[in-house]
Amino acid sequence: MIETSHLSFTIGDSQILRDVSLSILPGVVTGLIGPNGAGKSTLLHCLAGLTEPSSGHVRIDGQDPFTARDDDRARMVAFLQQSPTTVSRLRVEELVAFGRWPHHRGRPGPEDAEQVAKALDAFDLEELAGRPIETLSGGQKQRAFVAMTYAQDTPWILLDEPLNALDPRHARNLMARLATLANEEGRSIAVVLHDINAAARWADQIVAMKDGQVLAHGASRDVLTSDTLYACFDTPFDTVPHAGRKLVVAT
């Protein structure tokens, strides 16, 4: 479980996170939703142990990510930032292999090669394996980075807006793949999403944020109500039952 207690983060006079205390359950997909500037990405950075909060604590399965060694932390939690930058001449399989860095630290073995092959297969990247990253489309690039995060083989995977630049087919496939990772491999996934219907369809738990605070937190069906969504986005929404989940429509 990832737990935060009284987490706050301030830059200058701006308070980005205000007294955030929550528990993120293991083995499920948790969606973080909220308007721009709600503090979702900052919270994800804090959960990953990459941005130290101004006050409060984070514990990942009981461990403090800020006191853990860099490679220990990277074997505990994989993090993919929003719009990651690339390196020219870097090939897809090399990027995915970077995910194995915390395990081999520059000396890859057969197990690392297996994990890279598994990640390429899991995200339909085998045909693109030899292509330089800069020749890929935005969506293909995004998939390659998610595959790198998967190859890191950590119990926790935190993704900041991974559906950016993905077409509906690849967005659906990616979310389905993440749900499978949670259901079949027991991975714990927290993902920042702007598409509320993607959150409604694929997330088991939802954290709704606004102005640096957690507005609501719980099972998707409980959080995704017209009232909560209105309070979160200041926009009216209708929720329609669809295939056992909710469909959210802005009205």
């Binding site: 950075h45 990953a48 990459l50 860099d70 490679d71 220990d72 932390r73 990277a74 074997r75 994989a78 993090f79 993919l80 930032q81 990651p84 930058t85 970077f98 995910g99 860095w101 915390p102 630290r105 890191q152």
Partner: peptide, 9 residues
């Protein structure tokens, strides 16, 4: 950020 996420100091 990406490098730190991969455990690089």
């Amino acid at each position: 950020q990406t490098a730190r996420g991969l455990g690089v100091p």
